[in-house]
């Protein structure tokens, strides 16, 4: 700005820059509410836990419940489903991480780390029913790996909800949940 005349910094330059900087801060402060309003609002956040009665789920049955507007699959797996899932070496998986919100972020994707914790509970598999590719709801008891098949772009999951064939990059997410009694879980 002050290149005409002298190249020296003047009091006026300082005032220009200080004014411009204040203006920029003000503009940013004004933009923030416009961006921030895009977030999930309080009413959406408030609806974030769901209870499921496990005693109503037959052996072999997959039940779909709604949590945060998304489907969650609760599967009462047969002994055969569990054995099959256990027999798969973790190193051979597309995604070797458990993706279990109840465990450490780097827990390996063994069947034990995917299924419910505790004695006699390993038959329970609770996963968010959203394909990790682009968000379709996979179809249960389908596909080559006896888990789920996604109709959108053909991803397949096994009986521990682990992705076995792309394009999905990750295993089906295990949501945060706990047992509130022996036959009831609370998701969220």
């Amino acid at each position: 700005m002050a290149t005409t005349g002298t190249a020296e910094t003047t009091r006026r330059d300082f005032l220009y820059i200080a004014t411009g900087a204040m203006g920029a801060v003000g503009a940013a402060a004004l933009v923030w509410p416009f961006v921030s309003q895009l977030q999930p609002d309080a009413s959406v956040l408030a609806l974030s836990s769901t209870e499921v009665d496990l005693s109503l789920i037959e052996e072999g049955q997959i039940v779909t419940v709604k949590w945060r507007g998304k489907p969650v699959f609760v599967w009462n797996r047969t002994a055969e489903d569990v054995t099959k899932a256990k027999d798969v070496p973790v190193a051979s998986l597309i995604d070797p991480v458990a993706r279990n919100a109840n465990l450490a972020a780097d827990a390996p994707a063994t069947d034990a780390n995917r299924a419910a914790e505790g004695d006699g509970r390993e038959k329970w598999l609770v996963v968010v029913g959203i394909c990790t590719h682009l968000g379709c709801v996979p179809i249960g008891h389908a596909g080559e790996f006896d888990g789920w098949f996604c109709p959108c772009h053909g991803s397949e999951y096994d009986s521990a909800g682990r992705v076995r064939r792309g394009p999905a990059p990750e295993n089906l997410a295990v949501p945060p949940y706990q047992f509130v009694s022996d036959t009831k879980i609370s998701i969220g």
Partner: peptide
């Protein structure tokens, strides 16, 4: 999430 304004 910000496009959706929620979790779905």
């Amino acid at each position: 999430q910000w496009l959706w304004g929620g979790f779905s």
